[in-house]
Design a protein around this nucleic acid. Sequence first.
DNA 1: ATTTAAACGAGACGGTACGTCGCGTCTTTGT
DNA 2: ACAAAGACGCGACGTACCGTCTCGTTTAAAT
Lengths: 202, 202, 202, 202
Amino acid sequence: MSRTAASRAGGAGPPTDGPRDRQAILAATLDALGEHGYARMTVEGVATRAGVHKATLYRWWASKGSLVGWALGAGLSTGPVADTGSTRDDLVTWLRGTIDNYTSTPAESALPALLSDLASEPGTLEGFRRSFLDARRANCAATVTRGIERGDIPADVDVGLVMDVLAGTVFYRQLVSGEPMDAALAERLVDLVLTGQIPRVA
Amino acid sequence: MSRTAASRAGGAGPPTDGPRDRQAILAATLDALGEHGYARMTVEGVATRAGVHKATLYRWWASKGSLVGWALGAGLSTGPVADTGSTRDDLVTWLRGTIDNYTSTPAESALPALLSDLASEPGTLEGFRRSFLDARRANCAATVTRGIERGDIPADVDVGLVMDVLAGTVFYRQLVSGEPMDAALAERLVDLVLTGQIPRVA
Amino acid sequence: MSRTAASRAGGAGPPTDGPRDRQAILAATLDALGEHGYARMTVEGVATRAGVHKATLYRWWASKGSLVGWALGAGLSTGPVADTGSTRDDLVTWLRGTIDNYTSTPAESALPALLSDLASEPGTLEGFRRSFLDARRANCAATVTRGIERGDIPADVDVGLVMDVLAGTVFYRQLVSGEPMDAALAERLVDLVLTGQIPRVA
Amino acid sequence: MSRTAASRAGGAGPPTDGPRDRQAILAATLDALGEHGYARMTVEGVATRAGVHKATLYRWWASKGSLVGWALGAGLSTGPVADTGSTRDDLVTWLRGTIDNYTSTPAESALPALLSDLASEPGTLEGFRRSFLDARRANCAATVTRGIERGDIPADVDVGLVMDVLAGTVFYRQLVSGEPMDAALAERLVDLVLTGQIPRVA
DNA sequence: ATTTAAACGAGACGGTACGTCGCGTCTTTGT
DNA sequence: ACAAAGACGCGACGTACCGTCTCGTTTAAAT
């Protein structure tokens, strides 16, 4: 009924007006995530580390899941990709950023447990997607669009699926198959979608 | 105390000799998974449903995670792919099976949380990969090998990466991006890796 | 900071000069007390009901306990007992008023919890006794004194104990034993202390 | 649905089969009560002191209130009054026990807050009355009955009211009026109800 | 009329304790 | 030897309410 409640209604998304110590909380959350992983980190631990009381966190986030969701969305690099003139290079740059996101300590194995937790708060899951993924996907889409304009990519390309191929392969490798993430991975995946070159063994 | 402990030492792997009510436990575990998801299902609930006592489960599995890991490995379809003579068709068939696995209720969002849980019991994670993934990946690899023999696929293809592209895209779409899983997805992905056709919008 | 602090120093007693909305606060406090009981009523609820901010309450009262203590003292009837010429009748009248006080919704079960709360703020408990009880006891004592002058009561009667017998029986019945408070109770108790008639069953 | 739930249904009453460390819990509860009072004692503190986990307490008692209610009922002396042949002496003995109960550290100011807390769990309040009061009142009633048989007390005496007068006066004095509890109090009250002697100042 | 000091509204916050949940362990008792 | 029954330790979760604090804004008395 107050503004607080209204700002929380969105779920995982960043509260429109947050607590006073936003920055400290963000840092503390990502730290805890990196140190202990999602399941073993505790809300109280985050509070202590941030110099804030647990109740304050629950005033602004509905659950542990939405706090972490917000932190990941707010804390991971998300800058747009510079236009170097080469569609391939730009996509590789973007994919490397994505790889960094998925292999950096905080997010690494946080995402799966997080997604699982958020599955029980349905609105929150969608909110997390919007705040975490959309910015990243928009950056990629922009790069692809430039590629289309240059004629490097057909105009009717299914951008969503391309992004799922690029990010999904990385994500799956990191979490499920556990195969190593070699340095050339980004190039090989971009070449696959761009020029149809089936990946070969190094 | 001897064989019990020994059989559990392996972690997530299937116990060398199991409890009496294996089938009921398997069914109960998958049911619970499908109904509540990994995080919200409870070991006690599984026990009750299986008409077994919780302690019995812990006698044979080291943790909730290893129980679920075993159930997924034992319960999801895993049959080898028939050789139809068409590499493309066989790969599509395999991928459709994978999609079914990832979109069927039990496994749907169980895998991420499971992987996260298993991450804290180090050996167990690897054990799960071996028991759950290897069979599926072997099937795919066999199909690819036949494709190589037929000359449809270059001999030095990076099979591991191909599998990550196929399965990873599906996995990511289901769990992270949340985009719909249309019927033609399997063909489009196989065509991408096989003939380099960039996916276009329908 | 000067007068405010000074006026609060007294504890449970009525502030020398109060907030603007005294009446609304009094009503809201007694209402809340009657509806939820002492333990379950909340200061914030009282504030809202009174159209006042919580901080205002804490500006004038040191604690929930002292607020309620003040409200009970200010809100319950406390008029002196008229002199009808009959000592018995006057005492019965007084005792009936006491019964009303203890059985009316607000005070009913508020007193015990209140006393318990006030026990931790030592001075406040005594302050509450002075402001709440003394007026009532003075009324009774006056009636007894008239009885002594009339020769109805021996001059060396222990007035304090008589009052404890009258009020205590009622209080205990209401709160502890839970036995019903029949209509003739006042007469029977007065007759007991006045003429030594042991109470008989109706 | 299990026996545990069934045994708790009664509310404040003693569980039919209790936790393993009943004695330690009883002692710890009464200790905590005596040291800190009802409001300031904590369930977790009781658990620690008893060498037990908080969850164990909540497994057997529905709330802090019912735990304390049980402890008071189980921990305070409740023995029957010996028959000395003198009705007056026996009643005095009984009343002295009651005074002890109400002035001993644990119960002293625990009862009011307890009663207030229990007011919100209605069944529990009644359960507490049954387990705490009934034994004591039965003892008194037995003594009165002997007095009737001896002809010391009229047969149609209202025993319930007599007990309320005796215990209520003591209770009220202790908690509300705060007047001192002198040594002769028991005799004076018994004489009041027995022989109609109005209490005089010492 | 204007200044000025106190009271007030708004609401975030620290703190304490509550009561809950589910995992995994252990003991007891059959079978 | 295994299994049923179920109490228990443990750790964390999320909630509630108290009482404090800061910051603007209103009110009302004093100049």
